[in-house]
């Protein structure tokens, strides 16, 4: 008899649990539901209204978090625009001002530190040779005798290997040629980082931190808005600026004018002038990534 009762008891508790299970499941969903961001779909497939609503919510969230008024734009690409970049290797002195201008403009995490632009110091006798390059050069004064500098960042490939591998379509190429990431959709698998031949993609290994007084409140959803931990980010040619007709921050800051930017489809643009009058090269051309980031020798 004792055995039977024992049996009944376990049966009952099991039944109780089974009764509770759906309630528990619903509860979890409901809790996650309070955080409507969790159920947001891939930004690329959303309608204009849905995008606007998300952007409004984000503005509110960021304004509260950083204590200043935030704007988050979702401005789409302009017609007849294909952005491209040119960098004059002969002028660059390796001062890294572009690196820090980029950090400030694009709200990169200060600790842990993220740099979208990496400047490589190379030996003149070796030429462009990554295996002989140094990112962590730290002399009293640049340029160092016998060296030249090669800044790298996202090369905004026409045939981007990173997009191909993303399992969730969380990164894509916009009509104006900019490769962007939906930080609300990226699952953080880092397959794109393995696929990128230019080390252009960076991961938020920890919770990103930006001091309130340094945060840039003028943002774009696909660009410089603050990111959560556990997602990938990268250079977007300052999409928040360039879609408003401004230059990227790195172009503006460069003290020697080594950085040029413009619309490839505009025959009168500076970038077209460089392509027609200078000899340009791209990095790792044999990989067929077709970068829209050209290097040239101006002088």
């Amino acid at each position: 008899m004792a055995d039977m009762q024992e049996n009944n008891k376990t049966k009952q508790s099991r039944r109780n649990f089974l009764k509770k299970a759906p309630v528990l499941a619903l509860g979890t969903i409901a809790m996650a539901g309070c955080n409507s961001e969790y159920f947001q779909q891939n930004f690329k497939i959303l309608s204009k209204e849905e995008k606007d609503k998300i952007v409004k919510n984000l503005e509110k969230k960021y304004s509260e978090k950083y204590g200043k008024k935030f704007s988050v734009s979702d401005k789409p690409a302009m017609d007849n625009t294909l952005f491209a970049y040119a960098l004059d290797i002969s002028r660059c002195v390796g001062c890294r001002r572009c690196v820090y201008a980029c950090v400030e403009e694009n709200n990169q995490s200060r600790d842990p530190q993220i740099h979208w632009i990496q400047v490589l110091q190379m030996n003149k006798e070796k030429g462009i040779d990554f295996h002989d390059a140094d990112v962590h050069y730290n002399p009293d004064q640049v340029p160092v005798e016998g060296h030249f500098y090669l800044p790298t960042q996202c090369q905004q490939c026409e045939n981007p290997p990173c997009i191909k591998v993303c399992p969730a379509k969380a990164t894509w190429k916009e009509p104006d040629g900019i490769v962007v990431v939906d930080y609300n959709w990226c699952i953080g698998c880092r397959y794109c980082m393995a696929a990128c031949p230019y080390g252009a993609r960076h991961f938020n290994w920890g919770e990103p931190s930006i001091p309130n007084e340094e945060v840039n409140p003028v943002t774009h959803y696909l660009g410089n808005r603050p990111r959560p931990k556990g997602v990938v980010e990268k250079c977007t040619f300052c999409v928040q600026r360039t879609r408003e007709g401004k230059y990227p921050a790195c172009v503006e800051i460069c003290p020697v004018g080594a950085r040029k930017f413009g619309n490839l489809l505009d025959p009168n643009s500076e970038i077209r002038y460089i392509m027609e009058n200078k000899r340009v090269l791209v990095l790792k051309e044999e990989l067929n990534t077709q970068p829209k980031f050209y290097y040239f020798f101006g002088v």
Partner: peptide
């Protein structure tokens, strides 16, 4: 455990 945002696994 390797992905940065495991709660978003359903995205893929």
């Amino acid at each position: 455990v390797d992905i940065g945002s495991p709660e978003r696994f359903w995205h893929m």
